[in-house]
């Protein structure tokens, strides 16, 4: 598929006897939000870790923008254009919102091995960072220390850092988790617009958000993708209803 930004081909990963990823094939195309859902323990986190580069698959191949990244490090993939947000916030907790986002801007531009000029006076980085903060709506908390932020605000901050990377694809692991109804709604409409900038592979438990946003949905159960398709297709898929939605939507 020529317009696929991310192509995951026949990935398998086992931990002992447990097959966490079982011959997974998945692609994310330009302009789309592809949601990845599945019950707890289905292997979503393991799959995300392999896409991000934290884990290496036993077999199979991952293509990012037509490049084979299967053996690349986290940093190399980030530099290629993979912008990731975490399920459990991975932020520098003692840094302010602005400092965290500046770190992202620095990662994107490069030049971390400059030892003398004050980084906070770097107009170029500052502009990038502040516009990303504004886009996620954290402007009034710019100088707040991250550890003082609420759960939802940390989520927004994660997205802001990913934005500074100007990624070619977003990899978002439960960005709605821990957010109030208001926050989820705001983030939903934000992600809706964001897909125009870069496609999103979205792992999410909030089904309202998934059904509202997703162009396609893949369902992962016991490490296997049991179905991929449009929202309607997934909603009416027997196996999916039994394996997953049945528990909630019955």
């Amino acid at each position: 598929m020529s317009d696929a930004v991310l192509n995951i081909l026949n990935i398998s990963k086992s931990f002992g006897a447990l097959k966490a990823s079982d011959d997974v094939t998945l692609d994310v195309r330009a302009g789309e939000i592809h949601a990845l859902i599945g019950p707890n323990g289905a292997g979503k986190s393991t799959l995300i870790a392999q896409i991000a580069g934290k884990l290496k698959p036993d077999t199979g191949k991952i293509d990012l923008l037509g490049m084979d990244v299967t053996r690349m490090s986290i940093a190399e993939r980030a530099n290629l254009g993979l912008g990731r947000t975490f399920q459990i916030s991975e932020l520098a907790m003692a840094y302010t919102v602005l400092e965290n986002v500046m770190l992202g801007a620095l990662g994107k531009r490069g030049g971390a091995f400059r030892f003398f000029k004050p980084v906070m006076k770097d107009a170029e980085l500052r502009e990038r960072a502040e516009s990303a903060i504004e886009r996620v709506g954290l402007s009034q908390h710019m100088n707040k220390v991250t550890s003082e932020l609420s759960h939802g605000q940390r989520r927004q901050l994660e997205v802001a850092v990913a934005l500074t990377l100007e990624p070619k694809i977003f990899l978002m692991d439960e960005p709605m988790a821990g957010m109030g109804a208001e926050g989820s709604k705001m983030l939903t409409s934000f992600l809706d617009e964001l897909r125009g900038q870069a496609p999103i592979l979205l792992v999410e438990h909030d089904m309202d958000a998934v059904f509202a946003l997703a162009d396609r949905i893949s369902v992962l159960v016991y490490g296997k993708v049991i179905a991929t398709g449009s929202v309607d297709y997934i909603r009416n898929h027997d196996e999916v209803r039994r394996a997953y939605l049945g528990e909630e939507a019955a």
Binding site: A52, S73, I74, A75, A78, R84, F86, E90, L91, A92, M93, A94, Y95, E99, N100, M102, L103, G104, L106, G107, K108, G111, A112, F113, R114, F115, F116, K117, P118, V119, D122, V161, T164, L165
Partner: peptide
């Protein structure tokens, strides 16, 4: 400096620095 920002960031959360 930029180096200081990145270094202190890596101390607090190496994963974060890696991800950018």
């Amino acid at each position: 400096s930029p180096f200081g920002l990145a270094l202190n960031g890596a101390r607090q959360n190496a994963q974060r620095v890696h991800t950018v």
